[in-house]
Amino acid sequence: MLARHAGKITGIAAALSPVGGLTGCAGMQSALDPAGHEAQELYLLFLGMCAGGAVVFISVVSLLIYAVHHQRRVHSDRVVARLILWGTVTTVAVLTVLLTFSLALWPGLRPVQAEGQPAIEITVTGHQFWWDVRYQTPDGQAVVVAANEVRLPVGERVFLTLESADMIHSFWIPALAGKMDMVPGRSTHLSLLATRPGVFRGPCAEYCGTSHALMAFSAVAMEPAAFTAWLAARRMPSPTAQAAGLQAFLSNGCGGCHTISGTEARGKIGPDLSHVGSRETIGAGILPNTVQSIARFIKEPDTIKPGVRMPSFRMLPDEEIAGIAQYLKGLQ
């Protein structure tokens, strides 16, 4: 309903607002630079509430300044009693309008998946301090396991089931939609509809321990065809030419915690690394995905991310770490 006018209103708001010109520059993680249906509607709601709020604020403060500074005329009790009465009536009216409007907006924001409705379903499980991501295709057959990155097609609603393996986390992609908590022992649900392609960032939004600040993920909205191709590629093990790196990976016990499809590494404790080389970032959204940062993470995860469960591998020779890093980066 609102989305149709969205572009126009956004443009006007950007021109009017003193900070408007800045909202576009670094919008990866911004609710003010929407790229999803829900985020868009809520952004417009916010602009509307700001405008209303500004009117209320200016009226009340002007009245207050006048009340404090007027010296000539003392107003009669009858007049000021009317102010209390009409002030209250106005408050009730404004709140009623706002509430009615928002209740009308509400059902369209997060429709639930109808019984038997084919759709892409994603289950995201929060861990300290990373995200396990599982895709299920509409045919219900294949499950693709990934981590710390959520990809979705533009223009198609995807349905998410959110769970937690340890603490309470909260799943939030500000550019696409509002957040939803991941509570141990419960499953919560969210649906997302991306309206334009792009790479966005999602931070964990519920304080979950020492490195809560270092728990994020990338959200990539892709054209539907590209998404389908990407998902199909993820069902296959990644071809790799770095046999030495794989050997080092396995002999140092990395497979005890991590899975790499097509190899003996089948650990379930840490993130699945099957196609880690193709992800936007590593370390759950905190480092650029380069061989150097992978090597650094293997060497000193406890420094990069205090409280992380992964042990450090400082004792390994640098060449060996570099080999593993090369191998992992090669898992495209």
Binding site: H75, T88, T91
Partner: peptide, 24 residues
């Protein structure tokens, strides 16, 4: 949660009204 703004508003209006009706 919206409703609680109403009595809160009343209290603010009462203060402003009192200031208006007196010499501050």
């Amino acid at each position: 949660s919206e409703a609680v703004a109403i009595p809160t508003g009343v209290q603010i209006f009462v203060f402003i009204a009192t200031l208006l009706a007196g010499r501050v």
